[in-house]
Amino acid sequence: MSIRFSFGGDEHIFAEVSEEMSLEAFFTSLSMTNAVKAAGIKGVTEICPANASFQIKFDPDAIKPGDLLKELQSMEGAASKSDASLKTRIMEIPVLYQDPWTHETLMRFRERHQNPKATDLEYAAEVNNLGSADDFIQAHSSQPWFVSMVGFVAGLPFLYQMVERKRQLQVPKYLRPRTDTPKLTIGHGGCFSCIYSVRGAGGYQMFGVTPMPIYDPAQKVSYLQDEMCLFRPGDIVKWKPVTRDEYDAAIEAVDANRYEPVIRPATFSLTEFNKDMAGTNAKLMEAIHGH
């Protein structure tokens, strides 16, 4: 894997590890950005890992663009050889699939959709050759997902499904982006799921909502007092389908600021995962329940 570097104007270097998405590309991007962080290069102001690429923002008054580029290129060999493993966290995220709020929103934007006669979930089931929305929900929620990027808007995680490529759910984005998406919508576009951290525009298909806040600029939510954004690249997520009653109970707990998210330490090794995906995932899911 050879990294393609390009200047983004006079203040950014953009690095594409791979044109296509893979966990290998993600880990190369992560080890490169970790190496840049550790190197403490003067003039570097932002280090942003992404799914299969990364971006460095710099002050060209402090470092010559060409010098920074050379420095990054010199790190490439070590990064691609580094061990693709992580000490990370697994989180259980409750999801009310087919909720009334995303339903109301998707009905308002039907003319921007590939199939105005179906809901987003029905369409997603159809294009993935799954029989029904329920089958799609089963495929979406049975195996864990990997946070391969945080961004778009504050704290929004991009999630990559931890299954063989041929089983990965893929759904096109809306034909034209919506101007509205409910806060905490579970969305999906291309091969990525996401959680919309704030209300706003969006182009991903909408499947449900979570009651669990993931971004709190006021830093009042108990588990977001230190960091206003919950997610970091490398986190692992397991969706947990919940009923309307369970959703309402969770909202009540969130409002009273006594909601306790299920977040457990976990380790992840890409080599082990590639050897035995089902076994690795089973172990990760056991970790949720403290085993």
Partner: peptide, 14 residues
């Protein structure tokens, strides 16, 4: 893989 079907699509990046 993962980019989306439109020729203007890329795998989501910064």
């Amino acid at each position: 893989f993962g980019a989306g079907s439109n020729p203007s699509n890329i795998v989501d990046a910064c």
